[in-house]
Simulated assay, not measured.
Amino acid sequence: MKNLRIDIVSIILIALLSVNTACQAQKSNVSDSDVKVEKKKKKKKKKKVRLPDIDLSHWKVTLPVTNEKGKPYEIEPPEIIDFASNEIAKPYMYIDSTRGAIVFHAMPTASKTKNTKYTRSELREQIVPGDNNANWTFKQGANMKGKLSMEQTTKGSDGKYHRTIIMQIHGRLTNEQRDLIGEDDNNAPPMLKIYWDNGKVRVKTKVLKNLNATDEEILHEDAWGDDDGFNFEQKVDFKKFTLEVQVSDGKMVIILNGNEYKVYESIHMKRWGVFENYFKAGNYFQSRDEGSFSKVRYYELEVSH
Results as ranks from 00 to 15, higher is better:
M1I: 05
K2L: 11
N3Q: 14
L4P: 00
D7C: 07
D7R: 12
I8P: 10
L13G: 07
V19G: 01
N20C: 14
C23A: 06
A25W: 06
Q26T: 14
N29M: 11
D32T: 10
V37M: 10
K39A: 15
K39M: 14
K42R: 04
K43A: 13
K43E: 15
K45D: 15
V49M: 05
D53T: 13
D53I: 12
L56R: 10
L56F: 15
K69N: 15
G70A: 00
P72R: 02
P77V: 10
P77G: 08
P78N: 08
D82T: 07
F83C: 01
A84N: 13
N86I: 02
E87S: 13
I88H: 03
K90Y: 01
P91V: 05
M93H: 11
I95V: 11
T98E: 13
R99Q: 14
R99V: 08
I102V: 15
M107P: 00
P108S: 01
T109H: 05
T109C: 10
S111Y: 03
S111F: 03
N115R: 13
T119H: 04
N132E: 15
N133D: 14
N133S: 14
A134I: 09
A134Q: 09
N135S: 14
T137N: 02
Q140F: 04
Q140C: 03
A142D: 12
K145E: 14
G146K: 09
L148Y: 14
S149L: 04
Q152W: 04
S157M: 05
D158E: 12
G159T: 08
K160W: 04
R163S: 15
I165Q: 00
I169W: 06
G171D: 10
T174M: 06
N175M: 05
Q177Y: 01
D179N: 08
L180E: 05
I181R: 06
G182W: 09
P190Q: 00
P190T: 00
M191G: 03
K193C: 13
Y195W: 04
K204I: 11
K206L: 12
V207T: 12
V207R: 10
K209E: 12
L211S: 10
L211V: 06
E217F: 04
E217S: 06
E221F: 12
G225L: 06
G225N: 07
D226E: 14
D226T: 08
D228Q: 09
G229C: 04
N231V: 06
F232H: 01
F232I: 00
Q234M: 05
Q234N: 10
K235D: 01
F238H: 14
L243N: 03
V245M: 01
V247K: 04
S248A: 13
G250V: 12
M252I: 12
N257C: 07
N257K: 06
V263Q: 08
E265G: 13
V274G: 08
V274C: 08
E276F: 02
E276L: 03
Y278V: 06
S287E: 00
D289V: 01
G291Q: 00
G291M: 02
S292Q: 03
Y298L: 13
